[in-house]
Each structure stands twice: as structure tokens, then as C-alpha cells.
Design a protein around this nucleic acid. Sequence first.
DNA 1: GAGTGGTCTAGACCACGAG
DNA 2: TCGTGGTCTAGACCACTCA
Lengths: 246, 246
Amino acid sequence: MANRYEHIADDLRRLIAVGTWPTGDRLPAEQELATRYKVSTPTLRNALEVLQSEGLIEKRHGSGNFVRRPGQRMTYANTRFDEAEQRSATVAAVSVRCDTRTVEADGQLSLFLGVDVGSPVTEYVFVGHQGTSPRSLARIYVPHVVARLGVPTAIESAWGDEVRELLSAAGVRVARTAERITARFPTTTEARMLHITSRSPVLAVERVSTDRAERVVEGALLVLPGDRTEVLFTTGSAPERLERSR
Amino acid sequence: MANRYEHIADDLRRLIAVGTWPTGDRLPAEQELATRYKVSTPTLRNALEVLQSEGLIEKRHGSGNFVRRPGQRMTYANTRFDEAEQRSATVAAVSVRCDTRTVEADGQLSLFLGVDVGSPVTEYVFVGHQGTSPRSLARIYVPHVVARLGVPTAIESAWGDEVRELLSAAGVRVARTAERITARFPTTTEARMLHITSRSPVLAVERVSTDRAERVVEGALLVLPGDRTEVLFTTGSAPERLERSR
DNA sequence: GAGTGGTCTAGACCACGAG
DNA sequence: TCGTGGTCTAGACCACTCA
């Protein structure tokens, strides 16, 4: 194993696992760790970025690096099996803001939605906040050709579910939803909106909903910080415990 | 916008988009680009890593940085709608190797599969290669309690579909499959097996298949390089063009 | 204001690939 | 062998947080 910072990451991972620094505690300062491991600061920071991407630590500019509680992730799911559990665990702590406006489709957006360049589209921008810091970004597009929807009220979902409810209420039926997921670094805009550096991985979800005629009725671009989010897809029947409780 | 390398990434993205360097061409050397942008090499390399994570360029150690053909990604999908297209486009170019062995579940694995620590489990390691370089890593686990399967033959899938076929042939019925997807940096082992640096984002897929009694019959850990892979989930009815062709 | 992380410099040296 | 990318150094300076 050649890389110095991989060695350090492995060692720090082990130290966290054995409880050297309990959950919520601050790690020693980066300078001190660098001295301890006899490396320069950029090298040590590479190691910390790896741990951050695994959700093991949380970096707080000006305060320090803190051990995160495991399993505290926001979940984007295709089903709502355990809606009650989910809400109480994570989504309840998230407040969502939504801005609505009409835009004209540029080249990229027209390709994504399958509409003409320049045609009007309603854009919804959902930003999920946990405390003061943004945690999710969802941009949702509905062509005016499909429907001219109003502004969603009583927003609970950070993924724009309300727009789909509005669509449904307007009589638009979704026949098929395709979700394409990639891992990458955020663009400049995304990094600024999510208050993360552009060197921390994000999950990018492109969701396209079509009707029976294969016309795109809704397109969504979701950007989720990799260290505190997960995507969950469940296929097949509901678990037995739920079937029993019916 | 504060970061120097974000500016550079934006500018290079634009230059690639307008065709300054055609697909397959080499970019100027990092030293020359650093001189041109009046930054140090680490700063310029940060910009290039962002472009790499978007699949825009491919880094070849010793050769240079090359403009990649867009849309050339391996696809991990939950459906096999367009199996024919997929195979010819991507999977056909991928050769897959599989190693099989029996391991005893350690703490992490026992938690993942819901079996006792130390209980025997069959491990399949699938490595997908494109040319000489590895492109995908799939580790699949089947507890001996569930079934003792043989070695798969005629491997075509890089995602271990053959193991699921063996399971099915052994009479084990999957009632439900849950797939959990996160974005992170690879671990040391994963980076070594995939021939990538541990600073390039990967998609991590944890797949758990259970039977009607909620017993885990198969667990899979997939690691996919973020710059050349995508996960595709489709829900709802098949598209009309396929329905018509029936 | 003291301490922390965030970014960047101007190099050095190593590892890889192709001729 | 030579040009390329990969890693690392030993600092500097700025931005943020909190007392």
C-alpha cells in the first residue's frame, strides 16, 4: 500500500471503532494529528476526507472534526413502507424550503425533458435544511405543456413529492419512473447551495416520470451529500411483519 | 466563488464542451495547464479530479488526461427491459472473473446477513474487466444455512446475477430485495482492486435479498467507480414500444 | 483574540507508459 | 530514456467559530 494517507485513514478508522474518541467528540486538531503521524497537513487532510465520505466524521470549519453518530442518514426511497419510522427518525428533523418559478428550457433541460428549446417549464427548487445547514437539493421540472401547477403547500418531503401529488391532482397519470444514480463531485453551484466543498462526493439522482405515451411529465435533479444521505430501493412484496399487521 | 480550482474546472468544462480538444484527445500536460492558469500543480489537479468524477476526462498515469466519449457508462439496473441494447453497448465489452470460497462471518458480515458470527458463508468475488483494467467489484455472500451452491459457469453479468440463478435453481425463493446506495471514497482494498485512487468517488450498493420469512438468502456488496458507472432503477409498466412489440 | 479548518504555493521525488 | 501523472513536503495565509 503506497499512499501515506490511506495508512492514516485506516489507523484513524480503527481508533474511532475502538472508541478512542466517543461519538460526538472532537478529534485532535489537524496540526496535532499531522505532527503525530509525521506528515504535512494536506496529506493528513486527505485521510480525513476519506473518513468524512464514509460518514464517520463531520468537519466543522473553525470548530474541529467530530465523530458522527453512525446510521444518521437521510434516506431517499422509492417506497414508503416504513414511513412512520422514517419520518420520526430523520425527516421530522428536516425543514424544507421551496421556490417556484417559470423558466425557458435551455439545451440541456430540453434534452432532459424531451421538450423544445425555449418552451416554458415550471421549476421547483427544494432545499432541505437540518438545523442551519442545507442537506439536500432537489430541482423539479414540469413542462407547461403537461400542466401548469400551483405552488405546493405544507411541504414535508425534501424530494419534491408534493409536486407529484399536484400532478396527480391535475389528472396527470405517471406510468413509469426511471431513476438514474451517479456518484460525482458537486458542481460549483451545488457546492455553494449545499455548503459543502466541491471535493466531497455527492449522490446525483436524475428522475424522469413519463405517462403511457412516454411523454415526460416530470423531471427531477436531486443532489445529496454523500456522507449523510443514502438511496434505498426496495422491490418485491412487503415484509411479513407489515402483512401481519394489516 | 472562492476556490481557484472551481474556476479552472468550470473553464476546462467549457473548453471541452466547445470542442477545443475532441473526444479521445489528450489535454495539455498538467504542468503546462498549471502554468497557463498560474496555479500550482495540486490546485490544477483538484480541478481535473472534478472533471474526472463527472466522466468528462480519463486520467492515464504516464500517458496524460484524455477527453472521454460521453455516455459510455456501465449500467447496474433493477430491470432487464432493454437487455439486448445494454449487452451490445456495454456489457459485451466487459469480461468478468469470479472467485469462490468459503469464509466464516465476522462481526460486520454477520450483521449484514443476519447470521451468527463464525457461521460459514460462501463468498463470490466478481471483478468486471474492460480491456486490461478492472471496472467493477461485486462481493456476494450466501450463508450455508440457506444453501450450498456450486461455482457459477458461463459468467455474463458483472453484478453476480448467476448466483441468484443458482439460488433459484436450488429452490430458494426471493420475496424481497432491498438495495442501499451511497457515494463515498473507496477503501484501501477496493481502490487497489479497481486500480483507482482512494480519492475518486464510487457508488456503493448494498443489496440484501430475503425470503418470505425475512431471512437473508443473499447479500451483495457492489463497488462501482463513479466516473464510469451508473445505477438505473425503473418502476412502473414497460414502455409502450415494448408493449406494442408483444 | 485564540484556535480551528480551508486553500494554496513552489517546488521535490516517485511510478508509469511508450518509444 | 523521457515525458507523463501521483504523491508529498513545509510552510503561508485566509475564513470561520467561540469565548
